[in-house]
């Protein structure tokens, strides 16, 4: 039975462990399905096995076949790496060795994908195959795992458990995984946060949210929402099975993208009355024409409260 399971080893770099906690929030029966199909050789927080050294030696000796290596957290390179030593290996050395043996290498969460917060003030800290926008990272831009795939990047701060488990289950059943230009599975990152947002009508008719704390109004115009520029399935596969940032009145902060966290996360920048950044692929001329017409003809019902005492 065990031999049919995927052997998966999960390492922590510089991390808040939020992707582990997010993983544990997976909706049933996904978590059970994952545990049935995966042999968790080692995980720093949840596996029975506590001795990482023992498992790493067995993998390096060829006694255990490593199917999937998962990294959560950013990695410091060379000299700056004081995280921990394992049999004399630093984390970056360990990652290099294990990723050369694993069939698949998965970067889970924005720290492992792009470096994210731990890399902001540390030049030597990066993600597995990226440092922010720049390709390279710890493994180098040309890295391919034994399966021929580059690092599978499951970005997000944190990543949604269903995106991660979805990828692992696809690997388990030998399905093809299509990646976008940032190495992210298209199945989850072809969408924008905007897709499925409950405020889409307000966006279409350019009805802005006047204040925070209401169901009504779009957050793109005043409150810095990056929904139309951010690739994620946040409003398609809901968080904790129930909600999302925009559904609870928060703007999307773009936490699946390389430039998270940007500055001024709660406000929209304007140039001469037009948002400085437009939804991806939309021309300035097109935006001005469409939004001008939309605003002029916006239906009154969108300017009232959605649920009130009236009829």
């Amino acid at each position: 039975m065990n031999s049919e399971k995927l052997n998966l080893l999960w390492l922590h770099g510089l991390t808040c462990c939020g992707n582990t906690q997010s993983f544990l929030c997976a909706e049933e029966p996904l978590l059970s399905s994952f545990l049935r199909k995966v042999n968790l050789i080692y995980h720093p927080a949840i596996s029975e096995e506590e001795e990482l050294e023992v498992k790493v030696r067995a993998i390096l000796n060829g006694d255990i076949k490593l199917d999937v290596l998962v990294l959560e957290g950013a990695v410091p390179k060379g000299e700056s790496d004081k995280t921990y030593k394992l049999d004399g290996m630093s984390l970056s050395e360990l990652v290099l060795k294990l990723s050369s043996l694993a069939d698949y290498t998965v970067a889970l969460g924005n720290c492992a994908v792009y470096g994210n917060i731990p890399a902001l003030k540390e030049k030597n800290v990066s993600g597995l195959q990226y440092r922010f926008k720049e390709k390279g990272g710890i493994l180098g831009k040309d890295f391919r795992s034994k399966s021929g795939m580059p690092v599978i990047n499951i970005s997000g701060c944190p990543a949604h458990p269903e995106w991660f488990i979805g990828v692992i289950l696809s690997i388990a059943s030998g399905k093809r995984i299509l990646l976008d230009s940032y190495g992210r599975p298209k199945e989850f990152y072809a969408y924008y946060t905007h897709d499925g947002c409950m405020r889409n009508q307000y966006y279409e008719w350019k009805v802005e949210a006047e204040s925070m704390g209401t169901k009504e109004g779009c957050l793109f115009y005043n409150f810095g929402c990056r929904g139309p520029m951010t690739k994620s399935s946040c409003n398609r596969i809901l968080w904790n099975g129930v909600s999302s940032k925009t559904r609870s009145g928060q703007p999307c902060f773009g936490c699946t993208e390389f430039d998270f966290p940007r500055a001024n996360l709660w406000e929209t920048k304007y140039n001469m009355g037009i948002p400085a950044e437009l939804p991806e692929g939309v021309s300035l001329r097109g935006y001005i024409m469409v939004s001008g017409i939309a605003k002029t003809f916006a239906p009154d019902r969108l300017k009232r409260r959605l649920i009130d005492e009236g009829e």
Binding site: C25, G213, F253
Partner: peptide, 29 residues
């Protein structure tokens, strides 16, 4: 534990890493 996280996310949008508390109150309605 996920009864609690789901309840939390129903109000705060998601857990972990919600930012639904802002000066003056909360963003959810």
């Amino acid at each position: 534990s996920n009864y609690a996280t789901k309840a939390l996310a129903t109000l705060a949008g998601q857990w972990p890493h919600s930012s639904y508390m802002v000066p003056g109150g909360v963003t959810c309605d």
